[in-house]
């Protein structure tokens, strides 16, 4: 379920009914959503900018078993190549697809957001991998993807990256800011 931004005008329309007040937050959210779809016509922005998902949930409990886990991350690194992720996203810097090593997440940067993106695809080119890989493999890839923006501990990273040895191994690379302010002026790699 996706709630586009900028709909606060509508939120004020449906009066809160007693079941909503009495029920839990989830029921309330559901009611609001139903109210939203009923209260006005769908509005779509034509500027092509994807909207982030805003639904807030607690972190998926599976996070813990895939993050900060060297085995899962290494498997993810291998699958990242096998499933041709690198063809579009390179080794994090992007190409035909957006970069994954910067601090910008169009569809959320949490593990479960990335897993959802991998399994179900996104508009403008991100294919759907559901049915091609297992859910477990999607979690492994997500774990590796988060490591590209240094969101995994250095001790978890694979000592031997699968990428062409054009870059320093991540274990030797100086650890930059976790979330660089400007992705165009990040730490310089002085090779050529």
């Amino acid at each position: 379920m996706r709630l586009p931004k900028g709909r606060t005008g509508c939120l004020s329309h449906p009066p809160l009914s007693p079941p909503c007040i009495q029920g839990g937050r989830l029921a309330c959210a559901l009611f609001l959503c139903l109210g939203l779809t009923a209260c006005d016509r769908e509005q779509r922005s034509l500027n092509g900018q994807p909207k982030a998902e805003t639904i807030a949930l607690a972190n998926d409990p599976r996070d813990l078993s895939y993050q900060e886990n060297s085995y899962q991350l290494s498997q993810g690194q291998r699958l990242y190549k096998w499933m041709n992720c690198s063809g579009c996203h390179a080794n994090g810097g992007g190409g035909m697809g957006p970069p994954l090593m910067d601090d910008e997440w169009r569809y959320g940067g949490r593990m479960e957001d990335i897993v959802r993106t991998i399994l179900h695809g996104r508009p403008n080119g991100m294919p759907r991998f559901e049915g091609k890989i297992t859910e477990q493999e999607a979690w492994q890839i997500a774990s590796y993807v988060r490591s590209l923006s240094a969101q995994q501990g250095q001790d978890v990273l694979s000592a031997r990256p699968d990428s062409m040895s054009a870059s320093e191994p991540p274990t030797l690379a100086e650890r930059g800011k976790v979330l660089p302010e400007n992705n165009l002026t990040g730490p310089k790699d002085e090779q050529n």
């Binding site: 810097g93 992007g94 190409g95 970069p99 910067d102 090779q191």
Partner: peptide, 21 residues
């Protein structure tokens, strides 16, 4: 020119099939 138009990340020197470098 994808580095500028698509805001790729030059820290990865294999980005845009190596052209970013």
């Amino acid at each position: 020119g994808a580095l500028v138009s698509a805001q790729l990340d030059p820290r990865d020197n294999s980005a845009a099939l190596g052209f970013v470098n």
